[in-house]
């Protein structure tokens, strides 16, 4: 038994059992942003969401947005590239802190 059961995603709406009006606002916002073409197409939004899902390591979202990407016509090349964008952003965010390390090294007269 894992903490993450795929079927639990179908129960997401249960969050509205208490303070339902907040859940309603969230789902309305969510569906407006992701469920239709806007300045970005649904397909582009699905690829962004897939990348974010990987960066945040959310198994529910990876599952859901893999399907959403496929159902908006995306292919494994595009989906993999989106995951690489997430990965290089993570790597870049780690590496750019090297400048802070340099600052600290200089402060200590070690650089």
């Amino acid at each position: 038994m894992s903490y993450y059961e795929p079927k639990d995603l179908d129960r997401f709406g249960e969050i509205g059992q208490f303070r339902g009006e907040l859940a309603e606002k969230f789902f309305d916002y969510y569906n407006t942003v992701t469920g239709q073409d806007g300045a970005l197409t649904k397909r582009e939004k699905a690829l962004i969401a897939l990348a974010v899902a990987h960066a945040k390591q959310c198994p529910y979202c990876i599952d859901a947005y893999t399907t959403q990407c496929l159902e908006t016509g995306a292919n494994p090349d595009e989906m993999t590239e989106a995951v690489h964008v997430a990965a290089v952003m993570e790597a870049g965010m780690t590496l750019v802190h090297g400048v802070q390390m340099h600052n600290a090294l200089r402060k200590r007269g070690a650089m």
Partner: peptide, 17 residues
């Protein structure tokens, strides 16, 4: 037709692609 267990994308969008 989809390569697996999912629904097709919108016909017009796919046609353009």
């Amino acid at each position: 037709n989809p390569v697996g267990a999912f629904l097709p994308a919108l016909q017009g969008d796919l046609e353009r692609q």
